[in-house]
Simulated assay, not measured.
Amino acid sequence: MNYRISQRAASLTPSLTLEIDAKAKRMKAEGQDLVGFGAGEPDFDTPQHIKDAAAAALAAGFTKYTPAAGIPELRKAIAEKHRRENGLEYEPEQIIVSCGGKHACYNVILATCQEGDEVLIPSPYWVSYPEMVKLAGATPVFLPTTDRTEFKVTPEQLRAAITPRTRLFILNSPSNPTGTVYTPEEVRALGDVCVEKGVLIMSDEIYEHLLYDGAVHRSVASFSRAHYEHTIIVHGFAKAWSMTGWRLGWTAAPEPIARAIDAIQSHSTSNPTSFAQKGGVAALTGPMEHLKTWLAEFDRRRRYAWERLNRIPGLSCVNARGAFYLFPNISGTGLKSVEFCKRLLETEKVAAVPGVAFGADDYIRISYATSMANLEKGLDRIERFCRSLVG
């Protein structure tokens, strides 16, 4: 039988982050003493009041279809969140609840891009952005950055990359994989270029609440009516509420784009899980005391890991100001990222993600969303590995 695979599917690169995380979990299940730095999820449990809300919804039989775009109660709560925290006015009809932040990103790209379009993506980038662009038939165009500029794209670099085919610019701040946070002034400057050139912005703000060292998040949509009309916000519950497995995200968009996303979702996944949406309402309307504790612990780990990494021969690392990742430069070891991570896993039982997955082959990504004990053990092993390479 000739199983013909579509060109779009064949062109995709499998997610290295998920692949490495799965391999690490298999090794742990086999009883191996493995330290995993690959996971992109908090190691804290979902707050109890959110779980209670979902359990109550299940007990009450709230297990049927909902509107494809989400229950009105949740869409209203999301709109109120943006008004309260970001100074942005959205009607509930402009909010589309999706099956996770990744699904929200895909919906946006599918609703706004097509064959012949170009999408500008700062590099390093989250692994799925380029693949989603390819699935929409558009072309990803990368804007390279390095640790020397704290992995930030400049307005001049953005303007120079825009062509008549440019449809969308993807802005992710705080960033996965680098932890970079653009200042409000830098965000506005990038937004100004997009407004001037008529380019839409997909602003991925899922790490909005995870900030350190006085870093400030401001949405590009908040600077003017023109910025608002050029911006589609992508967000979700995975990071700040540790709801990764709940698969619950959202978009906030100008109404025509929101309608297009709703139509796409109605013919693909339909609604997000009904009782998970009740948990989402509880997350947005309930207490946030957990976040202060989580941030203090993330910050403690971040500082420790950053200091350790910069003392390891062959490595250098810019400190993150958001999210829960560090992105050390490994070029001093003489290895590229895949070989480095492969040998690190085989010899020292430490799982990290090769930077090539993010478009940066001289780096690796380390998640500090793990215990301090794991950080200490894993960094001891990384140091031993690097010393074997460079002395």
Rank of each mutant, 00 (worst) to 15 (best):
N271D: 09
K25H: 15
Q157K: 00
E383P: 02
A352N: 04
M132Y: 08
Y228K: 14
H209L: 04
V181C: 14
A305V: 01
P177N: 11
R188I: 11
H103P: 10
F324V: 04
A24H: 02
K197M: 11
G179R: 07
L344Q: 12
S337Y: 01
M372I: 00
I364P: 10
A352I: 15
W250H: 08
F44S: 04
R300D: 02
G137S: 06
P42F: 03
A111D: 05
K134A: 07
I330A: 03
C99V: 15
V181S: 05
P254N: 08
N86I: 04
P47Q: 03
V356G: 08
I121N: 02
G245S: 08
M243D: 05
E376Y: 02
N2P: 09
T146Q: 03
L171P: 03
A24I: 13
T66P: 07
K28D: 14
S222C: 12
R4H: 10
W126I: 09
V318N: 07
A296D: 15
G391N: 11
A29C: 11
R301W: 00
I109Y: 11
L58R: 07
F151M: 02
G332S: 04
K377M: 01
D52Q: 14
G280R: 09
C317T: 11
P122A: 00
L88C: 07
L295R: 15
Y106L: 12
A351Y: 07
H217Q: 08
G101D: 10
L158K: 02
S123A: 13
R365T: 06
S203F: 11
K342Q: 09
I330T: 06
D43Y: 00
T183I: 05
S331I: 05
P177R: 12
E41M: 13
P122S: 00
H217D: 01
P122C: 00
W241C: 08
G314E: 07
R218N: 07
G70N: 01
I71S: 02
R225F: 03
G322R: 01
Q32H: 12
L309C: 03
M202R: 10
